Computed example of a mutant assay.
Amino acid sequence: MSWFKRESKGIITTTDQKKEAPDGIWNKCPQCKKPLHYSEQVENQYVCHYCGYHLRIGSKEYFSVLFDNNEFTELFADMTSGDPLQFTDSKKYTDRLSETQFKTGLKDAIRAGVGKINGQELVIACMDFNFIGGSMGSVVGEKIARSIDHCIANKIPFLMISKSGGARMMEAAFSLMQMAKTSAKLALLGQAKIPFISLLTDPTTGGVTASYAMLGDINIAEPGALIGFAGPRVIKETIKKDLPKGFQTAEFVQEHGFLDFIVDRREMKEELGAFLKMMRN
C-alpha cells in the first residue's frame, strides 16, 4: 500500500491521521449552497458574499454588528421563565428550559442592551431563534416592557429586533398576554415621543408579528425575511385559494404596505443611525 501512503515522497496521508475542520469554521449557504468560511461571514456581517443571502444570527451577532465597538451594557440579564402551568408534553417545561439554557448559553429567547450606534444612544432588544424557536413567553414580554420603561426614564430610542416562531405554547395564556402588555408599553413610549424602530428578521411570525413587531414608528426588514401570522398551509386551507408567489417574504409584505423599508444588513448600522438622527430632529 505504499502508493496510498506515498512513502517515496516522505508523506503519509492515511485516513486515520486525517484531521477534520473544527465545527463552525465552514458552513454552507442555505440558498446558493456554496461553502462559507466563518471569518468571511463575520467580515461580511453574516451575509453570503456569493448570493446576498442573510444568514440567521442571534443577539450576540446583532449586538456586534450594530453597537459601536460592540460596547453595551446588558439589561435584565438574569431573568428566567417560571412554570406557572406545570406544563408537560414529551418532557417537563422546566427540563426543556434547563437543557436549552445549557445548550445556547442564553437565559431566554431575548437579550436587551443599551449602547451607542454611530455615537447615538439606543436600547436594543433582540430575540434569539435558537431558544425554543424564539418563542414569546413571559420573560420575553417582561424584558421588552422593562426595556421600554428604561427608554422612557432615560429618553433613549428603542430598537426591537424580532425573530420568532410566535407565542410559547408551554405558557399558554401567559404568553398571549405579552402581546397586550408590550403593545400598551409601546403606546406609552409613543406618548413620551420617544422613537421606536422595529426590525423584522427571518422569521417573524405568530403573535410577535401581531403585536410589537408591526408597531414601529418605522418598520424595516432584512431582505428575504419570512414575515407573517399563520403559516401558508393554514391560510390556504382557510381561504380555499392558492397563495401568490413569494407570499410572506419581506418584499411581498413591503409591496402591500406593511413595511417602510428593506435594508441590507451590511448597511443596517448606517441606516439606523440616519433614522435616529432624523427622528430626533
Rank of each mutant, 00 (worst) to 15 (best):
Q45P: 02
F63I: 02
M136S: 06
M160A: 13
I161F: 09
C51W: 02
S135Q: 13
E142Q: 15
I156K: 12
V42Q: 04
I161H: 13
V114Q: 03
V123D: 00
G82T: 10
A77K: 14
R111P: 00
H49N: 12
E121A: 08
N70H: 14
T100V: 01
D89I: 01
G82Q: 07
K143C: 05
I110R: 04
P157S: 07
A77M: 03
H49S: 12
L159N: 08
Y50H: 07
I144V: 13
D95C: 03
T94V: 05
Q45V: 05
P35T: 03
T80S: 11
C126K: 06
F158S: 07
C32Y: 11
L159R: 11
T88W: 03
L55H: 15
S98N: 14
E99G: 07
F131N: 11
L85M: 08
D89A: 06
I156D: 06
C51I: 04
S162Y: 10
K60G: 05
C32G: 07
D95F: 02
H37L: 15
H49E: 08
E71P: 04
R111M: 03
Q45D: 08
T80N: 12
A145C: 10
L97K: 11
Y46T: 02
D89M: 06
F87I: 06
Q45T: 08
N154Y: 08
P157G: 01
T88H: 13
V140I: 08
E40N: 09
G133M: 05
E74P: 01
T94E: 11
P84G: 03
G58Y: 11
E43R: 13
K92R: 11
N130R: 13
F131D: 09
D68Y: 04
E74M: 08
I144C: 13
N154V: 00
I117A: 00
C48A: 07
N70R: 06
F72D: 01
K155R: 15
I57K: 12
M127W: 01
I144M: 12
K143L: 10
Y53H: 15
A77L: 02
N130T: 14
D149H: 09
L36T: 04
D95N: 10
T100P: 09
G134H: 02
P35A: 02
Q31F: 06
L159E: 09
P157D: 05
S98L: 13
T104N: 08
T73V: 14
V65W: 04
F72T: 02
G52I: 05
F102R: 15
G82K: 14
R146E: 14
V123Q: 00
S135I: 04
L97H: 12
N69Q: 13
